[in-house]
Design a protein around this nucleic acid. Structure first.
Lengths: 260, 260
DNA sequence: CCCGTATATTACCCGTGGGTAACAAATAGT
DNA sequence: ACTATTTGTTACCCACGGGTAATATACGGG
């Protein structure tokens, strides 16, 4: 009786994909649905704010009803935490990649800055800085706090390393890290896709701007030509999607938070 | 019957002053109480977050009960807005003072940066960046958005002015302003009084650090000696308190938001 | 001394939204 | 086909907190 026109849903195979087509054909992999919930939730939490966004809103956007969400999560705060956790995995990958690479302290600082900045233009990245830690339960709050310290440590270590190898002017690593990370975190508050600049463009601009104050070498090597259409940046975009896919596949640990 | 021991309250004349001594002697200037509500509310909203902090909490901390708050405010969101408005007045004063002064674009940018940074270490300053605009009604939200644009404009104008007069390297004023203001705004998220550095110390460090990247002249003139005990900085502290007092007295416009 | 106004209290309303219970439909295995 | 399991649904509970009504207390002016 509620068989509303299937044409409406067949119109877009990967539009803003919800695995739950209105009522029928809801056979699908569990984890796929779980991730769909998180995608929708993080978007809604960012749009409306965690407290204004209700679970009914989340469910409605997925063509299901609120109690169905409880098949995948214990409650609202767990959804919040899982959204954050995905963002955190992405940050961890940034740090891991950067640390694995070669280069001076300044090089690594810049590399991390670019990656982190671009992450801040995505939903899961924003969740790292716009969600309120106090909405989590005791355990998860501790996890988040520890992770935040880890990120801060990464910035600080690269700066200290740069001071040691001469690529960075002598400075207070702690304060410099706060200054840089703060500026990057703030991106998560104002960036909106669809604006004048892409996330990648913003990231590259910020990386230069934020590090040129403490670098010993001048940053002004190339002219101000916009880095559009460079095959290098195109390649990196591909890499980005590869990373996202890899994360989706390798969510190993969190994936078995299942209970039932 | 509820005459709880007056010793407990007589112990501290200016401790964490609430004009409502437990039950008696509640004759006091109206505006003084109104401001006390705001002081308490902003502190609580920052501690707990706006949605977790209840009006009962606010009232309890003032030794009164929830409905009494409605003698001074129409509702919770108006309290939030008024807290924000005080912070905004303080910012406006920073901008006005800076614009009134003399100096190059870089000088002004630095001056504003110092003042703004220090403001971010205070409760009312934090309210500017930690309160969620979406908790306000339509009208107030517009006011806040306009004010935010004004602040951004100030940073941008000083940078552009600096580029024009040669004190600032040629750069995209918009992005540079975002980078600087973002870093400063983030102070409001991590600074806690009682830490290793005072608000003023953080402010001065950030002002140097954030502007040295775009300045044409090197910032490294004086050594790293902490600027304590300088008569100039002492004078500025005095000036700061004078400003605070002036604001308390001259809240002219908002003060007659009275209705009844 | 009495009354009006301001300001506080107690008692209450009620919308909201997270969470649960009971039940139904689809799926997979045998 | 029959049944167990998964995964939905509908209907409900109830704690919480913003907001209001009715009322009491203090103060200030005639």
């Amino acid at each position: 009786m509620r068989q509303q026109l299937p044409d409406m849903d067949a119109r877009s195979p990967s539009d803003n994909e919800s695995p739950w087509l209105p009522f029928e054909s809801r056979r699908r992999a569990r984890d796929e649905k779980r991730e769909a919930v998180l995608r929708t939730a993080v978007a809604l939490f960012l749009e409306q704010g965690y407290h204004r966004a209700t679970l009914n809103d989340v469910a409605k956007r997925l063509n299901i009803t609120k109690p169905a969400l409880y098949n995948y999560f214990r409650g609202k705060d767990e959804i919040l935490f899982e959204c954050w956790a995905i963002g955190n995995e992405l940050v961890d990958e940034c740090i891991a990649e950067t640390s694995a690479g070669v280069g001076s302290g300044l090089d690594k600082l810049r590399k991390l800055t670019v990656r982190y900045a671009e992450l801040m233009t995505t939903d899961y990245g924003k969740s790292l800085v716009r969600f309120d830690i106090r909405d989590l339960n005791e355990d998860n709050r501790k996890i988040v706090q520890t992770a935040k310290r880890r990120i801060d440590r990464a910035f600080r270590d690269y700066i200290a390393q740069g001071v040691a190898d001469g690529s960075v002017k002598p400075c207070d690593a702690k304060l410099s890290a706060f200054a840089i990370a703060g500026s990057l975190n703030w991106i998560g508050h104002w960036f909106q896709p669809g604006g004048a600049m892409t996330g990648r463009a913003v990231a590259e601009e910020f990386a230069i701007r934020l590090t040129e104050g403490i670098a010993t070498t001048s940053t002004r090597k190339k002219a101000d030509k916009p880095p559009r259409k460079g095959n290098a940046s195109r390649e990196e975009q591909g890499e980005h999607h590869a990373r996202t896919a890899a994360r989706a596949a390798g969510q190993s640990k969190r994936a078995r938070n299942r209970l039932r």
